[in-house]
């Protein structure tokens, strides 16, 4: 547990003032902020995604390009070192009996993520709404998380880059030497919007990606996961991934 300045001050103040201190009084007064200006994640949620591969086609990559625009993910033109938060994977049945399948693969935001487990600095962490995120301020670039992740969801930033011209200011651009990956567009979720890929998929008239809260039994994704057949990638590893697939 770390104690920041305010909690130390607060603790000291509380002990000194005891009951005399009115509950809710803050030692450093925060200005009034209008409710609309705070983007907050909601504890108790469990975000998840359901991808219907029968509605996903190999010629469409709307989700991938939307992600690159939203999150300022550059392409270096070096396939082995490019950063991919989400990518389209083509599947061909080895026995040639089933038709080829095309689907997006992204960070699975596992309930038991091995990347968080191995990170020495707690830079990879699980937020209280179930998102697996990277605190890049803390990342030392040891790459152990990339070794541990079975989904190849993570990329190291190999190149030093300058900010591209049209950037989305709401998402920081990148520093070389840290690891990054899909955030389920945490900044959008906190504002009550859907991830960029899901929105783009719907806009491209595919509607293959469904996003929602698994802890809410009435949400569409909960209902469909309950009624319809679905699967996750590598369930044998027991990581409880939260990107579900249908139609493979």
């Amino acid at each position: 547990m770390t104690m920041d300045r305010r909690s130390v001050l607060g603790l000291g103040g509380a002990i000194a003032a005891g009951v005399a201190l009115a509950p809710g009084l803050r030692l450093i007064a925060a200005p009034e902020t209008s409710p609309g200006s705070v983007a907050a994640s909601t504890p108790g949620k469990r975000w998840a995604m359901l991808i219907d591969t029968s509605r996903c086609s190999s010629d469409c990559s709307a989700c991938v390009s939307a992600c690159r625009t939203e999150n300022n993910v550059p392409l270096f033109g070096d396939p082995e070192r490019d950063i991919h938060w989400i990518r389209k994977v083509e599947l061909r049945d080895q026995s040639q009996r089933k038709a080829p399948v095309s689907l997006p693969v992204l960070c699975n935001h596992c309930e038991q993520p091995p990347c968080v487990h191995v990170c020495p600095t707690e830079a990879s962490f699980i937020r209280h709404d179930g998102l697996v995120l990277i605190d890049k301020h803390r990342c030392i670039g040891c790459r152990y998380c990339i070794i541990a992740c079975p989904y190849k969801a993570r990329s190291l930033v190999f190149y030093k880059t300058k900010p591209p011209k049209d950037t989305n200011p709401n998402v920081p651009i990148r520093a070389a030497g840290v690891v990054e990956k899909c955030t389920f567009c945490a900044h959008r979720l906190d504002e009550g919007k859907l991830p960029a890929c899901v929105e783009a998929c719907a806009k491209a008239d595919k509607g293959a990606m469904l996003f929602g809260d698994l802890n809410d039994p009435k949400s569409e994704i909960s209902q469909r996961l309950l009624k319809e057949k679905s699967q996750t990638i590598r369930p044998d590893l027991g990581l409880k991934p939260h990107v579900h697939y249908q139609g493979i």
């Binding site: 770390t2 487990h117 191995v118 600095t121 990342c139 030392i140 840290v178």
Partner: peptide, 20 residues
Amino acid sequence: LGRPDNMLLPMIHMNFRSMF
């Protein structure tokens, strides 16, 4: 390390489940 300038961070924030 990718960020050797952050080398001392593991001393401040330790994840005791990590093999490292």
